[in-house]
Amino acid sequence: MTPTSATTPTGSHVASTGVEDGRSLGQIVGDLSNDLTTLVKQELELARTELKEEAAKAGKGAGMLGGAGVAGLLALILGSFALAYLLDNWMPVELAFLIVTLIWAIVGAVLAARGRKELKNANPQLPETQQTLKEDAAWVRAQKN
């Protein structure tokens, strides 16, 4: 279809593509409003979904840090007593308590390092939502023109 030229009542020429919508200005504004409402709802749903995924990752890391805390507590209590009684046969009691405590401290450090790594892998920036918001902004700009 080729564009045609039409003359307005004031005598100026207006290019036309030959496509007539048949909707009134009020209907167009109403449709645009409905489209924007739907778009905002979809963006909120996407953000909610992404936040749930990221919260699950952060929860896993926090759980590992909690495990590191429990391991540290066990290092102080169980390690000091169990191995101290065993090693007391070959060395002074003080050295026996120190050895067991160091073993549990190493376990706690490993769990803490893994938990920290999990927390760093969580991405709270919501990359998909940011991308679709940029696309939506471009779409709105295109609708204005």
Rank of each mutant, 00 (worst) to 15 (best):
7 T>Q: 06
56 A>Q: 01
134 K>S: 13
141 R>E: 12
76 L>T: 04
42 Q>A: 03
18 G>A: 03
96 A>V: 13
32 L>R: 00
67 G>C: 09
115 G>A: 15
82 A>P: 10
24 S>H: 06
71 A>M: 02
86 L>G: 15
86 L>E: 14
15 A>S: 04
68 A>H: 01
87 L>M: 06
9 P>S: 00
138 A>G: 10
92 P>D: 15
122 A>V: 07
94 E>Q: 13
124 P>H: 03
10 T>D: 06
19 V>D: 00
20 E>V: 05
114 R>C: 09
4 T>I: 13
100 V>N: 11
54 E>K: 05
30 G>E: 13
55 A>W: 06
49 T>K: 12
2 T>Y: 10
17 T>Y: 02
62 A>S: 04
46 L>T: 03
118 E>K: 14
136 D>A: 11
59 G>F: 00
61 G>T: 05
107 V>K: 00
29 V>A: 11
112 A>L: 13
78 L>V: 03
26 G>D: 10
80 S>H: 14
103 I>P: 11
91 M>E: 07
60 K>W: 12
6 A>G: 04
18 G>Y: 03
79 G>D: 07
126 L>Y: 00
28 I>Y: 01
116 R>S: 04
66 G>K: 11
5 S>E: 08
36 L>M: 04
40 V>A: 06
96 A>G: 13
72 G>S: 07
33 S>Q: 12
28 I>A: 03
72 G>D: 09
5 S>V: 09
15 A>D: 01
135 E>M: 08
78 L>C: 06
21 D>V: 15
94 E>C: 04
14 V>G: 02
102 L>S: 15
108 G>L: 08
18 G>L: 11
81 F>Y: 14
88 D>Q: 12
138 A>L: 15
97 F>Y: 13
83 L>R: 02
65 L>H: 02
125 Q>I: 11
11 G>E: 02
9 P>V: 00
82 A>R: 10
118 E>H: 10
47 A>T: 02
57 K>T: 01
9 P>H: 00
60 K>E: 08
42 Q>V: 06
3 P>F: 14
32 L>E: 02
141 R>H: 09
64 M>Y: 05
93 V>Y: 15
29 V>S: 06
132 T>Q: 11
94 E>N: 09
32 L>N: 04
11 G>K: 01
98 L>P: 08
